[in-house]
């Protein structure tokens, strides 16, 4: 199986471990990822905040590259995934937008490639059964809560992924690799997103709410699939010691990949003592 791969800026920067673990896990599961040639930034929050045209234009240009590559595109970053899906949705639903984009990027959007986030890739394209069959080290004893954040599941009509209030997919993956995915109420509460740099005070309040709820649920760590969320949860929590990990990192651990140790070392809050205490480190 071969897919196009759109890492996005964060995965080439502060969220390297997400990039590495996504690529690593895919390779381990026999999936080839081909990074889109000369991809550009999706515009993220700033794009849709400021620019009526570019907020669709930037992701549309990436979709153009993806369509030219001719493969379904995997997008690990929740924000990038959301922007690409938004552009795809807008061009599909509104002829005016489609025409506008044709003028902007000299390309007529065909809607040929599927946009997949990492969870979808594992669950639908690979299947949990395959995952279970390749399990080397089940994460027995690890209690986590899965944090989906906003951008994967909302707006429903755009992403069409899982459930906006009660998503389950990531929990199922965590269960499949032997971890205990606890039920909790803050799966899709917002972490403050792009306010991290400017309204850190707000983000702190929101993050503490999420971390406190995770602890209350009895979790030892939070698992997520969004670099923006992980950044905020790690850097803005008052606790300063509650681990947050990408689900792909834990997949790596469960698949017995030695590289996962390198990924886990890149965290502001080091999760290795927790995993070590449970005998889960490779």
């Amino acid at each position: 199986m071969t897919y196009s791969y759109y890492p996005g800026c964060s995965l080439h920067g502060s969220s390297r471990e997400y990039d590495d673990s996504s690529r690593g896990v895919c390779a381990e599961l026999g999936i080839e990822l081909k990074e889109l040639p000369d991809w550009i930034c999706c515009g993220a929050s700033s794009g849709h905040s400021l620019d009526e045209v570019l907020n669709i234009g930037l992701p549309a240009r990436n979709l153009k590259i993806a369509e030219q590559a001719g493969l379904d595109v995997v997008v690990p970053c929740a924000a990038c995934y959301n922007r690409l899906k938004t552009a795809e949705h807008a061009m599909r639903e509104k002829e005016s937008v489609r025409n506008q984009m044709r003028d902007l990027i000299d390309y007529d959007h065909k809607g040929r490639v599927q946009i997949l986030n990492m969870i979808e890739l594992i669950q639908d394209q690979i299947s949990l059964d395959t995952l279970r069959s390749k399990l080397v080290k089940p994460l027995t004893g690890l209690r986590v809560v899965c944090y989906y954040g906003c951008l994967l599941v909302r707006p429903v009509e755009v992403t069409g992924f899982d459930h906006p209030e009660h998503p389950r997919s990531l929990d199922e993956i965590m269960s499949a690799i032997g971890a205990e995915a606890l039920g909790w109420s803050y799966k899709t509460e917002c972490c403050g997103g792009s306010h991290s740099l400017t309204r850190t005070d707000i983000v702190r309040v929101l993050v503490d709410g999420i971390v406190d709820m995770a602890k209350e649920a009895g979790a030892q760590a939070i698992v997520t699939a969004c670099p923006l969320c992980l950044g905020n949860l790690e850097m803005r929590q008052s606790d300063g010691g509650f681990p947050v990990m990408y689900f792909t990192e834990l997949l790596g651990v469960a698949l017995g990949m030695n590289e996962s140790r390198d990924w886990l070392k890149k965290h502001v809050i080091d999760p290795t003592p927790l995993l070590g205490s449970l005998g889960l480190l490779p």
Binding site: S14, C41, G43, S46, L197, T198, R199
Partner: peptide
Amino acid sequence: ERDVAVMHGLFMSGIRKRGRMHE
């Protein structure tokens, strides 16, 4: 909330300059 507006502006001009955001 000038800072928020400025941040978004810088984010976009960064993309304009390089095609990608550099943290």
